[in-house]
Design a binder for these strands. Structure first.
Length: 422
RNA sequence: GGAGAUGUCGCAUAGUGGCCUAGUGCGCCCGCCUGCUAAGCGGGUUGAGGUUGAUACCUCUCGCGGGUUCAAAUCCCGCCAUCUCCGCCA
């Protein structure tokens, strides 16, 4: 959530941010009146409660008839206090529920509009010209089957559609990418983490995944636990309810975890292969820093994502995601999209978001400063999403005979070329 | 899964219905004193919310949430966490 004081001090700023997202600014007026109602209820309750405490102190000292009179008076007041407290709690809950639906203030620098209104910031490398090379590119699934790397048929048999087995060199490829990513992360000063992938509702809610994205989340009703869609969730909740020493910022983590996504709104999209699946593993970067430093840190995270794709020798472009496509928590988001030859277009392989203090307010993560405590800023970015990276490596590195040439960074793990097994 | 114990301010502890506006010690911060340091002395030291131009005042906060009561750190119920024992298990 954002700073509630903005509702009183500068509501126009919120309205403008809503407009940039293509969302309704009406919620701001609803929030302002809910906030007024809430504050009025608090004042009523606190006045009654102060009176109750004052009388209570007298009851303790009084004797005989005086005590009986006071008891009668205070008994009456007790009902008033109880009612006022309930009214205050309800007004607070009403405000809170609405307030949590309000997304973070989209940055004025984010392009206005929806999904298709992104701006291309940079394009790196050149997609191969397969026509000039004299063969039609195979897609990643065909290559994966030739190499004995991917088995989606048995994935579906065992777990259903959008599940897969990585086999042989496919499994080794994920392990190599994981190891390489961890090595890079340590070089860059991030702390590797292996977090739990089942979390409590508060962790899921705090990161903003139970809002409009709730349908995309797996929930275990028997245990009241959620399967995370990204290790951003446990990494953000890691410091929840803590007040951090400013000297320890920035805190930079790289979490490796499975990611579970129901893909509820994606029926019929990317149904072939392992491009869009219900489960994959990912190394995710997560940073806690100050609000002032968050903008530079955002660029730094993007830099690391680019360095990673450079190391994998993949052609890619970087886009500035439009305000309407930011999700609840981010004020700005950069996506890296790798070239996918079989589709003839760039597809998202990583994403870097600046969530400023939005998640930190919900999760109650603060830093002790000179003027009291203030919420920290949180940022997240993909280092390596395994399945999509494997798609890009296979398709971009393929040769006419179905073998795949690997980038130099992976040679120590798997050699230079993956050969078809049949 | 079963049985039991525990949860108070950064840490350690006191507090078994009103005198708690949560005491004390340690640590930490500021000041005084002092060749320096230490000791000593004085003051401060959870966090959130509300009223307010400001100063200031008020409310909440004893793991979390309910309940009983005129009044709850204290009594009752539920949950969470930790520890011990039994069972099961990678």
């Amino acid at each position: 959530m954002i700073d509630a004081r903005l509702l009183r001090d500068d509501p126009d700023q919120i309205r403008e941010a809503q407009v940039r997202r293509g969302a309704s600014p009406e919620i701001v007026d609803q929030l302002i009146s809910a906030d007024e109602a809430r504050r009025a209820a608090i004042a009523t309750y606190e006045t009654a409660r102060a009176e109750q405490k004052r009388l209570g102190a007298q009851v303790a000292k009084a004797q005989g008839d005086e005590k009986q009179a006071l008891l009668a008076q205070t008994k009456e007041l007790s009902a008033t206090v109880k009612g006022a407290e309930a009214a205050q709690a309800e007004a607070g809950a009403t405000f809170d529920e609405l307030f949590r639906q309000l997304p973070n203030l989209a940055s004025p620098e984010a392009p206005a509009g929806g999904e298709d209104d992104f701006v291309v910031l940079d394009t790196v490398g050149t997609p191969r010209d397969f026509a000039a090379e004299g063969f039609a590119p195979r897609d990643h699934l065909e290559l994966g089957e030739l190499l004995g790397a991917i088995d989606v048929e048995r994935g579906a048999k065992v777990s259903g559609s959008r599940f897969y087995f990585l086999t042989g060199v496919g499994a080794r490829l994920e392990l190599a990418l994981t190891q390489l990513a961890a090595t890079k992360a340590v070089e860059w000063g991030l702390t590797p983490m292996i977090p739990p992938s089942l979390v409590r509702p508060s962790a899921m809610e705090g990161t903003g995944f139970l809002g409009q994205a709730a349908d995309d989340v797996y929930y275990l009703e028997k245990d009241d636990l959620y399967l995370v869609g990204t290790s951003e969730v446990p990494l953000a909740a890691y410091h929840s309810d803590e007040i951090l020493d400013p000297a320890t910022l920035p805190r930079r983590y790289a979490g490796f975890s499975p990611c579970f996504r129901r893909e509820a709104g994606s029926h019929g999209k990317d149904t072939r292969g392992i491009f869009r699946v219900h489960w994959f593993d990912k190394v995710e970067m997560f940073v806690y820093t100050t609000l002032e430093d968050s903008y530079a840190e955002h660029e730094r995270i993007l830099g690391w994502e680019r360095a990673w794709l450079d190391a994998l020798e993949l052609p890619y472009r970087v886009i500035d995601v439009a305000a309407g496509d930011l999700g609840l928590s981010a004020i700005r988001k950069f996506d890296c999209e790798a070239w996918v030859p079989s589709q003839g277009r760039y597809r998202e392989v990583s994403s870097a978001s600046n969530c400023t203090s939005f998640q930190a307010r919900r999760l109650d993560i603060r830093v002790r400063g000179e003027a009291g405590t203030t919420p920290v800023a949180t940022l997240n970015g993909t280092l390596c999403a395994m399945t999509r990276t494997i798609v890009a490596l296979l398709e971009n590195g393929q040769q006419a005979d179905g073998s795949v040439r690997l980038p130099a960074a992976l040679h120590p793990f798997l050699g230079e070329v993956l050969e078809p097994i049949a």
